[in-house]
Design a binder for these strands. Structure first.
Lengths: 223, 223
DNA sequence: ACCTGAACACCGTTCAAGT
DNA sequence: ACCTGAACACCGTTCAAGT
């Protein structure tokens, strides 16, 4: 049996793309908290300092991962996907699902928004849908911001509970605090405790999108 | 000159309250990133392990700090503060300002909500105001959630730019990406670039609250 | 220009042992 | 019950030196 010329495959050259690829793989395997500069470097068979040639810092790395991921958002471009409102739902639900599936990334997206091509495409698509719905441009522009922010924040909130047990305990603690709120001090919380925590994430997301669209439609920017 | 019985003041006994107090002081001096378990312990003249008798982990500590801070929210209880809508503005703007002034805390609030008395009071107040505005209880319950989430997310986003220079660069990068978006690939972003980033944080917050209230009013929970 | 070894300056959390 | 020294298992980022 001939011995291959090189026992190990050649170490592939570092590129920004390759770094983001490996980061995505690490994240799929164990969540964003496993994607550290040091571990990423280890997976790429180099030292952490080498990564800084291609990536400015951890925040930028996270933004790059997210932008790559945003390529998977369903932009509802098919002709038979219904009216603008329904297609808006499709896009935003798809975006939300993506972030729900990748715990931790949503949180970093709130602080450092991706500025890559996929993010721009998403914004462009939402602007087009609101325009189709007759929303005046100024309030559409601010509206898109809040639509994305709301979806991102929901995912950040939820995802943390999936990712580690500790946050799940916090969640239970808040629920208990709501359920056990004294009827004298907090009469409305006491009366509406069930409403406050009702619904699946899907139901709440759907209502939130409807509500936001209604609000955007009804609120001109010049008072 | 008589030598005092003890040269140094007696080391005060550790309590949860005292720990949160000191944490708040550290945060005022240098932002949340300066409030680490180790530094906090140092400020309290003890070792980090001692804190774990009173605080389960860092997330819980942050939530406790925020709940303490929420005691300062203007609940618009004065008789002459106008109608429900205006008072809702007062409460939410006050909440937003608080988080803007304490960079970093907003971010942690999105993941671990405080479950203390001040947070419950805030929720109770918002429920009362929406009730006064004739909003049906089920959609008020979900609405309060989004009102707080939106204010918190805005603060998280903004505050990071204040806190460190790096995020400010990210912000500029996104703005440039929007401003320079190609008219062919992103026609609407190109046309609406100015709108997308226009307005002061105050103006955007005000519009967002109006928009959310309009949406909540217009969106029943049973479709 | 690209890459890296080594260092700097830190983290959160646990746990056995003390009082 | 409360407290702690010491350890465990990590971090991000920088920089001088190499190729």
């Amino acid at each position: 049996m001939p011995i291959s010329r090189r026992e190990r495959p050649a170490k592939p050259a570092l590129t920004r793309e390759g770094i983001v690829d490996t980061a995505l793989r690490l994240m799929d395997e164990g969540g964003l908290q496993r994607v550290t500069m040091r571990r990423l470097a280890l997976a790429l068979d180099t030292g952490p300092a080498s990564l800084y040639v291609y990536v400015a810092n951890t925040a930028e790395l996270h933004a790059a991962i997210l932008d790559r991921l945003l390529g998977q958002v369903d932009l509802a471009q098919a002709a038979d996907e219904g009216g603008w409102r329904e297609r808006l739902h499709t896009v935003l639900v798809s975006y939300t699902r993506l972030l729900f599936a990748h715990p931790g990334l949503a949180q970093s997206a709130l602080v450092t928004r991706p500025a890559g091509p996929h993010y721009l495409t998403l914004v462009e698509t939402l602007l087009a849908l609101l325009d189709e719905g007759g929303v005046p441009a100024p309030q559409a522009a601010w509206g898109v911001d809040i639509l994305l922010q709301s979806a991102t924040a929901s995912a950040a909130e939820h995802s943390s509970r999936v990712e580690d047990t500790r946050s799940d305990e916090e969640w239970r603690r808040l629920n208990r605090a709501l359920a056990e709120a004294s009827a004298e001090t907090y009469p409305r919380i006491h009366a509406q405790a069930a409403d406050l925590v009702s619904g699946t994430p899907e139901e709440r997301t759907r209502w939130a999108i409807d509500m936001l669209v209604n609000g955007i439609l009804a609120t001109p920017r010049t008072r």
